[in-house]
Design a protein around this nucleic acid. Structure first.
Lengths: 232, 232
DNA sequence: CGTTTTCTAAATCCATAGATTTAGAACAAT
DNA sequence: ATTGTTCTAAATCTATGGATTTAGAAAACG
């Protein structure tokens, strides 16, 4: 249990001074977290984080001055392993999505009961990710919608399936920005052979040049994982 | 409350006949759902769905014969508004991610208490998305990890920022698979002017040809939303 | 006002890309 | 055994792509 460990440190960042004070009091009185910093400025907050290296940061993301989302991104870039919980007044799907995408470990509405905030902090402190179920639902609607097109196009007849395995290899190298010579060298075959393969690829994908072939490949699920680094 | 509505219909698909029978009994006895179909075959299940148009489908995704994920995709393609809940023996992050990506409205482990399955069905039937919090956590770890690179590279110095607005237009057309002539026609400028722009783009992006320029653009946040359809 | 940037354009030249045809070898399928 | 597919390769030809230089007009900046 956590009583035996050192109290986890928390830094609060909220441009609303009243809310900041309220949350600070709440945490101090009703939880076993240690508030080591509280500020209304995102920039000051980041400095506090650098100084104190807290386990948890409660970050208001509805700040006008500096965008809270941007602040989350900067905190993540520090790579301190700080766990950021986004605090927001809105259950907007796009906000939730962007906050989670940037690495927030939780998203809590300001209107939620104080016990839920403490619970979220406990969960996040123990390494989990916490999203209230209503927000999880919102998130997934957004998430699934953003993948809808991709799913549809990927289920259409995919011309990529007509490629032979060697042609797939060649196309893979094309999607890394190689020219004929580069491909020939990498596959230990002659340049003219590569040309033959590439021409066959064009026919099968019904495109006119390598750029279109590469675009077709990327738009149709080719090389989804190994989002290739350019071979420049 | 749901008592006043017609009982929501459910179809069960699970290649394990024993488990299938157990779940059917459970739902019949302990919930207000109406099991209108149960089969061990994904293909038969899809036919049942076409016939009965159920509100809910419980789909085992650990089937050897036909992949359950593929079945989900096919069901979503029908566009019947069927709400699929994935049933799985594994809390594997990649499985969860793929199931949700394909449009599953819930993901429940077979090892979970039966009450939780009923709860999930209630939630999903009422239009929400249900993921147990432990799985939500798993999902987000995977999700955030898959966006990590993107966040990092997007915060590196982006050579795209050096492009003039005209060059951005030209690059945009390049990322749609246009050649010089196509770009010239679309921008009402001469082909040689396009060549000048394109050469300047190459210099600024430090690449050697159009394919590499397009790849750089796509990998660095250019045209993120309007995931361009090819101009073939 | 002068300077710089951007957009436009042409000319030239060489390199690469792409189309097309032909063909041998290996292998799988029936 | 024969047919079909895949992978290999070359030759040839034309089209497109890319590098480089030069330059005018317009707009932006200071």
């Amino acid at each position: 249990m956590r009583e035996f460990k050192r109290k986890a440190r928390v830094i609060l960042i909220d441009d609303n001074a009243d809310h900041l004070r309220g949350v600070k009091e709440l945490i101090t009185l009703e939880s076993s977290f240690d508030v080591v910093g509280a500020t209304t400025s995102a920039n000051l907050g980041i400095n506090l984080i650098k100084k104190h290296r807290p386990e948890i940061v409660l970050m208001d993301i509805n700040m006008p001055e500096k965008d809270g989302l941007q602040a989350i991104q900067e905190i993540e870039k520090l790579n301190f392993g700080v766990k950021v919980i986004a605090l927001s007044g809105y259950d907007d799907a796009d906000l939730i999505f962007r906050a989670m995408k940037l690495g927030a470990k939780g998203y809590v509405l300001k209107t939620m009961a104080s016990a839920q905030l403490i619970y979220a902090m406990d969960e996040v402190a123990s390494g989990k990710i916490y999203l209230p179920s209503a927000l999880t639902s919102r998130f997934f609607e957004y998430f699934q919608n953003s993948f809808k097109n991709e799913a549809e196009t990927s289920s259409e007849e995919n011309l990529l399936s007509y490629l032979t395995s060697r042609e797939e290899e060649v196309l893979d190298l094309l999607t890394q920005g190689n020219n004929y010579k580069g491909i020939a060298n990498k596959l230990f075959i002659s340049e003219t052979t590569v040309k033959t393969h590439v021409n066959n690829i064009f026919q099968k994908l019904q495109v006119n040049d390598r750029t279109q072939a590469v675009l077709y490949a990327l738009n149709n699920g080719f090389a989804n994982k190994r989002r290739a680094k350019l071979a420049i």
